[in-house]
Design a protein around this nucleic acid. Structure first.
Length: 717
DNA sequence: TACGAGTCAATAAC
DNA sequence: GTTATTGACTCGTA
């Protein structure tokens, strides 16, 4: 429910003065008692608020407090006073158990294409209420969704996060819609602008492709629609937007901006989705590829230049295929190895291809670089890949295939390491840290011992990578004395330490060294800060770490202690739900540690997390200026409260109405639900935080893109 | 004093 | 046994 109002663009329209959402009727939330001219506490000493409780018992009750009356519960058997209600529903353990069972048994209805029909027939909120102003108090109470639930119980799970532009598509419409005409118009538009139907369904309707397909095929008359009207309203509003905005919602450019160069056309051809769901014989395909490479003497590095798929190549006419290799020779000697993970997608030819290939940027050869695998092969910068290597790759069948396959999924996601201060790119994405992420900053770089050589390598790197940034920082700025800022020299030295280079200045202890010195050594590596202004893409970093942990079977608990210097639970949540870098305040240190670990060579990485090696777990240190957690005389920790399902349900419902109740209100909630005040306060505090965190995570554009990838089939027009 | 951010750690879920 | 969830807690700040 609150995912809609959590969306950024909705805030202005739907947020109350306190910064928290208004209800779906445009009024301040029910709990904002001031908006109803009420004081937080009534003459009874209890706040005039409603606490709807999804009671699972046979009475199917609904607890709320009347606006100016004492607590009561509306049940099918009539009105029940508060005490009776709670005696029956909260204090009776048998009843509580039934509550559990009923809650488990209650089917959850999702707002997806499968049950749109159900929702249309049985919505907790009348569809019209979503689009018509019901600001009057009568309307408000009459359309109380909890009342509706009581009449016709149904549990609505929040739909997927919607794009920010969604709210404008939900704007009220002047009257009824001729759905047939509307669908016809939409079909024309889809034709005209080559819009992917599935993408349209996702972006505009926030639904799956089936919904749109069904609508277009068989539009229902307006007066027979209920909640499904929302789809038509969104289409109506979308069609009424200016073209640029319409396409903007779909993340499309105006037609004249497309296919500006032949390069783009090529990219489109190569990145076209596969027709239907072809069952590719990948072995045959690779054999064909090798044959073709041999026959036409195509430089393998050339073939590997772009992140294209073999299937696409072979589906082009031979002449067109060869066109790709008529370009100027690329300078292999400056090129970082990119073949292994980019050129060939053995396993996943079904996957839609990256659609934002930066082929226009002829200087950027590495845009499509996928994440490196956990293997540490290729520490030499392969200049031109030998035939044996390509053959070995093409025919190999080892565990890394699976890993690479996983990683290739991420290759669709652009890395972000954009330092606006240092960027000399003329792209206009300085304010959009998630756009045009050209390289994998987390790729473990094989830094050569020779700094000059390294600079040569870095010369060809995209401007936004962390390595590039560090390199520039090293050249442009002098590190202030006493402050360690990693420069290229630092990193190169670090690299040398494990390579046994001649200029190895580090004192890496062997595993037989004392755990203290090992700890100090590794702690120094892990805690090394990034340069000022460096930006990490936390999402990709954490995904990469998760993959690494899975592949190497590193337990989170060990990794958490040894690398992250946090507890397992913290690490788990952080890895699964990373916050965008710019949303992290004092907690960047842990990401930096992960990044530093990921940059280490495999043997060091594994040594740090080796169960057999007893590395001293570091004392908790202040992180990013944050003070040390007080450990002196630890106060007795309150035993963990386990909320009963009914209590939890009530708290959540209240939270959706008012995430920030006053102390008085919370006290009353606590009293009513028979909880202690602290638990209630903690609940609101924690839920606010976690909701806000979710909102921040939703701003990771990759989330949208990944959702899109998952849903993407072949529903192109 | 209230609150956000970060975290621990118990425990539920797998 | 491992990972995910979440109530409780600390600290810094307004």
């Amino acid at each position: 429910m609150y995912q809609n109002w959590r969306e950024e663009d909705l805030e202005a329209a739907m947020t109350s003065s306190s910064g928290y959402p208004r209800d779906s009727f445009g009024t301040d939330a029910l709990w904002d008692t001031e908006s109803f001219g009420m004081t937080p506490t009534s003459s009874f000493g209890a706040p005039n608020v409603s606490i709807p409780v999804q009671s699972p018992d046979k009475k199917n009750g609904l607890l709320y407090q009347r606006q100016h009356g004492p607590w009561s519960a509306q049940t099918n058997d009539g009105v029940m006073d508060k005490e009776t209600y709670f005696n029956e529903n909260l204090e009776n353990t048998v009843e509580k158990e039934r509550c559990n069972e009923m809650e488990r048994a209650r089917p959850v209805v999702y707002a997806d294409d499968e049950n749109t029909k159900i929702l249309g027939e049985k919505s907790s909120v009348p569809a019209t209420n979503l689009f018509q102003s019901t600001s009057g108090p009568d309307n408000f109470w009459n359309s109380n969704p909890y009342k509706a639930w009581n009449d016709s119980p149904i549990t609505l799970k929040p739909t997927e996060p919607m794009v920010n532009s969604m709210h404008q598509l939900d704007a009220p419409i002047p009257g009824n819609i001729d759905t047939e005409e509307l669908c016809e118009k939409l079909t024309q538009e889809i034709h005209k602008y080559y819009i992917c139907r599935q993408y349209f369904a996702k972006k505009v309707l926030n639904k799956g492709p089936k919904v749109l397909r069904k609508m277009l095929k068989d539009p229902k008359p307006w007066n027979k629609l209920q909640s499904a009207r929302v789809n038509y309203i969104r289409i109506y509003n979308w069609l009424n937007l200016p073209l640029e905005k319409r396409l903007g919602i779909l993340d499309m450019e105006l037609p004249e901006k497309k296919c500006e160069t032949t390069e783009t056309v090529k990219a489109d051809l190569l990145n076209a989705p596969l027709p239907g769901k072809p069952d590719l014989d990948t072995e045959q395909l690779t054999e064909q590829l090798v044959q073709e490479i041999k026959t036409h003497e195509i430089p393998q590095a050339k073939f590997a230049k772009n992140d294209v798929r073999i299937y696409d190549r072979f589906n082009l006419p031979a002449e067109e295929r060869m066109e790709y290799f008529k370009e100027d020779n690329i300078n292999c000697s400056k090129k970082r190895k990119s073949f292994e993970y980019n050129a060939i997608d053995h396993h996943d030819n079904h996957r839609p291809i990256q659609n934002n290939l930066d082929v226009d940027d002829s200087n950027n050869q590495y845009n499509q670089q996928a994440l490196q695998t956990s293997t540490d092969m290729g520490s030499n910068d392969a200049l031109c890949i030998p035939e044996s290597q390509i053959q070995a790759y093409l025919h190999r069948d080892d565990i890394n295939d699976q890993y690479n396959h996983e990683l290739l999924q991420n290759s669709n996601v652009r890395m972000h390491n954009h330092d606006p201060m240092l960027s000399n790119s003329d792209t206009d994405d300085s304010n959009n840290q998630y756009s045009h992420q050209p390289n994998n900053p987390y790729k473990r770089q094989p830094f050569p011992a020779d700094i000059n050589c390294a600079r040569e390598v870095f010369k060809k790197e995209p401007f936004h990578s962390v390595d590039s940034i560090l390199n520039k920082m090293a050249r442009r700025t002098q590190t202030p004395s006493g402050v360690r800022s990693p420069s290229l020299n630092d990193v190169a030295r670090l690299d040398d330490s494990y390579r046994g280079g001649s200029n190895n200045n580090s004192t890496k202890p062997t595993s037989s060294s004392s755990s203290d010195s090992a700890f100090e050594y590794y702690e120094g590596l892990l805690a090394a800060p990034l340069a000022d202004g460096a930006v990490l893409d936390t999402k990709i970093l954490c995904d990469s770490i998760l993959q690494e942990l899975a592949i190497k079977k590193i337990p989170q608990a060990i990794f958490a202690k040894r690398v992250a210097n946090r507890c397992q639970g913290t690490l788990s949540e952080l890895l699964r739900k990373p916050k965008p870098w710019d949303c992290v305040k004092t907690g960047r240190g842990i990401y930096v540690r992960l990044y530093n670990w990921y940059q280490l060579p495999e043997d060091q990485r594994m040594e740090i997390v080796d169960k057999k090696i007893n590395i001293a777990v570091p004392e908790k240190k202040p992180v990013d200026g944050k003070g040390i957690r007080t450990t002196e005389a630890p106060a007795q920790k309150k035993p963990r409260t386990v909320f009963l399902p009914v209590q939890k349900s009530a708290l959540q419902t209240i939270f959706e109405e008012n995430p920030k109740p006053s102390a008085d209100v919370m006290a009353h909630i606590a009293q009513t639900l028979e909880l202690d005040n602290d638990s209630v306060a903690n609940f609101f505090q924690n839920t606010r935080k976690r909701t806000n965190d979710q909102m921040k995570r939703n701003r990771h554009p990759q989330n949208d893109f990944q959702d899109y990838q998952e849903n993407q089939k072949t529903d192109y027009y």
